[in-house]
Each structure stands twice: as C-alpha cells, then as structure tokens.
Design a protein around this nucleic acid. Structure first.
Length: 183
DNA sequence: AATCGTCGTTCTT
DNA sequence: AAGAACGACGATT
C-alpha cells in the first residue's frame, strides 16, 4: 500500500524546541499532531517547517507540553502519562504497522526485529522491519530504540548508536546500565 | 568473517 | 512499468 492521500507534500509544519536534560529536541507539528521529532543537534530532518511561538496557539501549546512531558518521562525511564497525537500519515502501510507495534513495547523492555515482523504477520520481513524502524519520524516516543537484533545484539540506530545505548540505559534495560562513555 | 535468503522501499532504466 | 540495488536482519557455514 502507498502513502495516504492527505498531507499535501509541502504541508507546513510548526517547529518548536523542547528542552531536556539531554539537550534541545526539535518537534515538528502538523495540523494532525506531532509529525517529526529530532534529537539535539540533528534538527535537519525537514525544510518544510517554520519556527513558531506557542504563545499564539493554545492547541499547539498543549501538544508541546504533552510532547515535553512524554519525552521527559521516557528519558527518566518512566512510562509517559499521556501522549500527543502522532501524525504518521507520511508512512506507508507497512511502516505504520511496524510503528504501531513499536508503541506496544513497554518502557524497559525490548523486542527483536524478527519478533516485530512476526507480530505484524510478516515473519520473514525482518530486514524490512529494520528499514521501517530507520524511517521512524518520531523516535523516542515511537520507541524504535527498544528493538534489538537477535541474541540481544544492539543492531543499528539512525540517530547514532550512542543515543540508542543512552535510551536503553535510561530505561534500565539489562546490559546497558552503566555504559560506555557517551561521545 | 563471509554468504545467502528474504522483503519493503528507492533508484534506475 | 519493470528490474536492480540497498539496508537499523537472521541463520548457516
């Protein structure tokens, strides 16, 4: 299946910075919700967003607060109390299936790429699952960092393996407690 | 460490 | 429109 009809390809996004103890994340909101989240120093994902002030827009202010709270919770190893609406219209059917499966992985737990593939009914698509994880536009909140390769091997991470290690460590996942120095 | 099967997505004809 | 190339994989040798 292919991309959803909505989302005019040039649809404007509202860009908001979110401060955390680990640096300044960047959130990009569409009219539907949070569409992209960038790690500190990596806010280069899109050019179709414009920086906005949340002062003027109550809804945007609320979504930003929800995003910040959820982000802070996960960075502290806690389950978020609530989530902002997530706009995943840009994803293909397969990608959305994968991303939805990721959202069911509890904080502090992990799955393998193969397990996710089996869960969405495509048990031999393990490699494609990895590709879909890499295309996840909302990392951390859609917890692609909780997917490891077989035998608890680390696997890959688009934003850099150090971020994956940090997130797993923050969630107390065994084997990542007090880890290699973050570079 | 090298190789092969597998599959969704993207890039080339 | 069709085929080749390319991965955040996994299993085998």
């Amino acid at each position: 299946m292919s991309r959803f009809e909505g989302q005019a390809s040039g649809e404007a996004l509202s860009r908001v910075s979110i401060d955390t103890s680990w640096g300044e994340f960047t959130a990009h909101f569409s009219v539907e919700g949070l569409a992209e989240l960038d790690f500190p120093g990596q806010a280069r994902r899109t050019s179709r967003s414009r920086s906005v002030s949340t002062d003027s827009n109550r809804g945007l202010r609320e979504w930003t607060a929800l995003t910040r709270d959820a982000l802070w919770a996960i960075l502290n190893g806690d389950a978020p109390d609530a989530m902002p609406p997530l706009d995943v219209r840009a994803g293909t059917h397969f990608q959305r299936q994968v991303w939805q499966a990721l959202r069911h992985i509890p904080v502090g737990q992990t799955r393998s790429y193969g397990e996710i593939a089996a869960e969405i009914g495509s048990p031999s698509a393990t490699r494609a699952v990895g590709t879909a994880c890499g295309a996840n536009p909302i990392p951390v909140l859609i917890p692609c960092h909780r997917v490891l390769a077989a035998h608890a091997r680390l696997g890959g991470f688009s934003a850099g393996l150090d971020w994956k290690r940090r997130l797993l460590a923050a969630e107390g996942v065994m084997g990542f407690e007090l880890n290699l120095p973050f570079k």
